[in-house]
Design a protein around this nucleic acid. Sequence first.
RNA 1: GUCCCCGUAGCUCAGCCGGAUAGAGCAACAGUUUCCUAAACUGUGGGUCGCAGGUUCGAGUCCUGUCGGGGACGCCA
Length: 593
Amino acid sequence: MTDICGDFRRLVIAALEDLIGEGALPRELPLSRVAVEPSREAAHGELSTNAAMVLAGPLRQNPMALAERIAGALRGRELETGDYRGRGFWVAAVRPGFINIRLAPEAWHAQLRAILAMGTHFGDSDLGGGERANIEFVSANPTGPMHVGHGRGAAFGDALAALLEKAGFAVTREYYINDAGAQVDALARSVHWRYREALGERVGAIPEGLYPGEYLVETGEAMARRDGRKWFGRPEEAWLAPVKDFAIAEMMALIRADLEALGIRHDLFVSERELIDSGAVEESLAALEKGGLIYTGVLEPPKGKPPPEDWEPRPQTLFRAARFGDDLDRPLRKSDGSWTYFAVDIANHREKFRRGFNNLIDVWGADHGGYVKRMQAVVSALSDGKATLDVKLIQLVHLFDKGQPVRMSKRAGTFVTLREVVEEVGKDVFRFIMLTRRNDQTLDFDFAKVTEQSKDNPVFYVQYAHARAASVMRHALEAFPLEALSDEALAGAPLERLTDPSELALLRPLALWPRVVESAAQAHEPHRIAFFLQEVAAEFHTLWTKGKEEATLRFILASDRELTLARLALVRGLALVVASGLAVIGVEPVEEM
RNA sequence: GUCCCCGUAGCUCAGCCGGAUAGAGCAACAGUUUCCUAAACUGUGGGUCGCAGGUUCGAGUCCUGUCGGGGACGCCA
């Protein structure tokens, strides 16, 4: 293992078991709450454990006295991992009952050696144990090109997928195509309109309720090229289905290209229409019916401000969502007899579970928040509680340019597509910026700021750290032309020469990378990776600058080959961890800028 | 009316499973450039964690209430 906190947690547990073995502590202690964490304050050592604090209660003992005893037991132990064997650490019980741990520098050096040995695989975890996880994300309606909000969901979902992969899950990236219902019918009508236009008919302005976007002009023309006048002047019943098929295929190609521009590829595309046609919806509802979870009833009118004018109490088919924590039972059929979106989505989620996934994650726009409880209710009901669904809601992106809001209106034709943004700023900038806020926080995206080459721009700042590291390595080759500077060779460098506090200040966060991966994966929060990278980059820039002020701290010292090698090892360690983090976010590390 | 999210420094935001004196960037102020990329760095000031209760040895974090902002509430997806 390379997770230093995990290693020390095992040590603490072993010490506690020693005390239990000696009869000094009773069996059946709630050890699960014992944690080892990096200290926030340097004065508190480097790691600390709450062991005495959490056990004092159940044991009805004074936490400080207990901390002393545990600290004593810790002093008598040696870490079992080879990496630390024979290397010192100091423990101290302190004030309310924390136990602080300070490591000999050699322990940190061992972590650097691990980074160099594992490369960008440093930080990989077996947290997931190979278990399968399904992430459904983007799932934009196939009615037009993606917009920036979809892009945020895409960047988030793909990063979360990569994060879970790094944490040891077998991940499937799913796209659920909403290719049934009124919206794709409107799409088909819009394309038919453009098709008539392409065939030379004077159609005038496109009617209300259809999609006015220019992008459909081309689709109409393509339709005309493929089918000629086949659907011209025919009634809608004749052309709706084939035009719809054509239009959806075109739109999905468009969306896939948008995703491709972001470097995102889904493993699985699930079609809403196919779920309906295959009878999967009936099957799913039959399964619920069996559990007595479906009935016919009348719902109260919605309590919203404007009571819907066409509202009438009507018996409908309902799922007992309220039994599973939802606020209301939920309808499955529309008044025309067709399935509600919810009914088909039940089948969608049942299929995920049937494909063998117990870890389900959906990434939705924040405006779908009202839908979360019912979907979780379904997953709980259908899997008998075995599967869990986590829904990540993505807040809006507000576009700015030099501080001025970019006003978007489909009607005025000032709508900015995802593609335009990505072409303007690049996919790396886009993907990184999308993770500089939590998913449930709105995000301001300023074209001027995100492309600015300054420390105020987090993408640049992190990229620059990687490029700067590469630059140091190039210079090192000039200074020591014959040296082998491979990672393998650097792992053999005399790392014990890294003793300066500012060097250790960089080394410590690098060593904590595996822990960041695990906690971010557990919380399903990829933004933590972006924040971590900014911290690490800051630490590196600080160290670099110290070298400017104090020549002895420079990475390359022609007079001291050994120290140079040790410092180059640190520089490479930084570059590898940054590259590893950027890989999760889907950003290419650059060698120079 | 009900449900969900948010409220932390002047601004934009982090804050892990409840833990020690609540952090970062920007802005403000004071500095650093013959030197591995100054495209950067160092330091200072700045807080009733919306408010009020509660649980706990301990609350920004959990619970209840309340105020403010956003979103959602059968036949849109």
